[in-house]
Design a protein around this nucleic acid. Structure first.
Lengths: 287, 287
DNA sequence: GATTAACTATCGTAAAATACGATTATTATA
DNA sequence: TATAATAATCGTATTTTACGATAGTTAATC
């Protein structure tokens, strides 16, 4: 039978004092308890560990080996407690982030993290909202930087940090102010920004162009060619994403008040929720 | 608080099955017991280890670390059980032996041991009976090869193997048959053979020579010079110890029936007593 | 939207382990 | 022979552990 840790501790203490009463005192138990513990241990291990007389306590060879091994067991158990005391800010965390945010937020965020929590090790995973959501569920990532609105399951918590306006962009040669049929360029299906633009601006289906882009860069290039109009997150524009395209104009009034929310998601049951929020507070609005 | 080994095993099993009911079955306990065990473990460690839902069991990072460390603890506990299962005949034992026996008995004994128990490692300690007795008490040696009679404390067990006759030796030029005053050469005080000769032969004090020897070799040399007479263990003579001394004669009749007993001593409480006796049975009478 | 199936948590009770204090037993020493 | 030191044992109280039954939760199905 497996020995109990407590009895192993009794044995180790006894090996130091070689006296049941003194060892018992050191273990904060009665002499009879320690005596019974040692006896129990010998039964569990089916071995004679200690030879007692009223004048001396002698450990057998096996007893001494058991003391050595017991020390290993006790120390590795204490290590086990240490393992649980790892501080979040001294550990390694994995953060998900969607591509339409990543480039505009991360540089500053990483910087802030390095300053605030220099021991925190980071891994970023950039993927679509849907994929990140799954990885949150499977605990592959600790939290994800998301854009809302997004349909969030109710075991996931959200925390919004700031509002990111979506600004109307078009070629400077374009004169009309309303969006024509098939004119609105959007990212591909499955990209949350696409859906957010549609819901935020009450877009009609027939206004959306047949052609869709897999990245903002492509989309901007197409607007620059006057293949259509679109909306861009303010944080992207702020990052001078339009500098190479002097022919694109930003119209702050058309489709006004369109916006998405930037924030994080994490599992409601995550025991590190507080620390995750502390971490998320270092995400800065770039404008 | 220190976690219990059992609960650690529950956790490790749970990490394999990721299902409380199945893990419980594998541990041969009820689902409620395993559930309570995991909860208790989390309390003991003051950490969230597992996130349960009706649909899945997920280990937290800390939970996974604890599983790893728990494996170490459990395995080192099982090693501890192995430690107690060390077979006497695969271990290292230390045997005491007195000098007046050593040379005549050991070569054969060691040979027998090597054949019977090839894995048994041996250390021999050669010293006076008194010293060996102390080392038996302190468990420095497992048993000792002794010559009797000897005053043995009653926590020590004796086991006699054979009788070793003590033979009268004298210079061949010597004519008389009784032992004169100051004629009997003996080993120094403290050597058990001295006392055994005195008690076995009812020697009178005035028969003992003033001169005493510290080894049998010296004693024989003195007999060879006709400085006195003495008694020699038969096992020594058998070993051709007298071959270099053709002037010494052995008188088998004088002081006849003088003898010592050869055997072993060991602590009564020694849990390996049976194996010690098995070992001792390989000590052979050399004649 | 009710039902089912697959889960884990919880509750009450029974059994087992553990602890304690007092006592007994042993033995070396004064 | 008495004393002092020490470990074992005994009876009782407490704590822990285990179990079965039940409740509670949630995703999937009808």
């Amino acid at each position: 039978m497996l020995p109990s840790l407590k009895n192993l501790e009794y044995l180790v203490t006894l090996s130091k004092y070689l006296n049941f009463s003194k060892a018992a005192k050191a273990c904060f138990v009665s002499q009879s308890t320690l005596s019974a513990g040692i006896t129990k241990l010998e039964q569990d291990l089916d071995a004679c560990l200690v030879e007692r007389s009223n004048k001396s306590v002698k450990f057998t060879k096996i007893g001494l080996s058991v003391v050595n091994q017991a020390n290993i067991v006790i120390h590795s158990t204490k290590d086990l407690i240490d393992v649980t005391k790892v501080d979040f800010f001294h550990s390694h965390i994995t953060i998900g982030i969607i591509p339409t945010i990543s480039a505009y937020l991360l540089p500053n965020f990483i910087n802030n993290l390095k300053v605030a929590y220099p021991k925190l090790k980071l891994t970023f995973i950039e993927d679509k909202s849907e994929v990140l959501l799954k990885k949150i569920q499977t605990m592959e990532i600790d939290f994800a930087i998301f854009a809302f609105p997004y349909d969030i399951p109710n075991n996931i918590e959200t925390y919004t940090i700031f509002k990111d306006p979506l600004l109307f962009i078009h070629h400077k040669g374009r004169k009309q102010s309303n969006v024509k049929q098939q004119e609105l360029l959007l990212l591909e299906q499955g990209n949350c920004l696409r859906d957010q633009i549609i819901s935020s601006c009450k877009i009609k289906k027939n206004q959306i162009s047949d052609c869709s882009c897999s990245s903002l860069a492509t989309l901007i290039a197409m607007v620059n060619m006057n293949s259509g109009v679109s909306l861009l997150p303010k944080m992207a524009i702020q990052q001078n994403i339009l500098t190479p395209y002097p022919d694109i104009q930003i119209n702050k009034n058309t489709l006004a008040q369109a916006s998405r929310d930037i924030g994080i998601i994490y599992r409601k049951k995550n025991s590190q929720a507080k620390n995750i929020l502390k971490t998320a507070k270092l995400i800065q609005c770039p404008f």
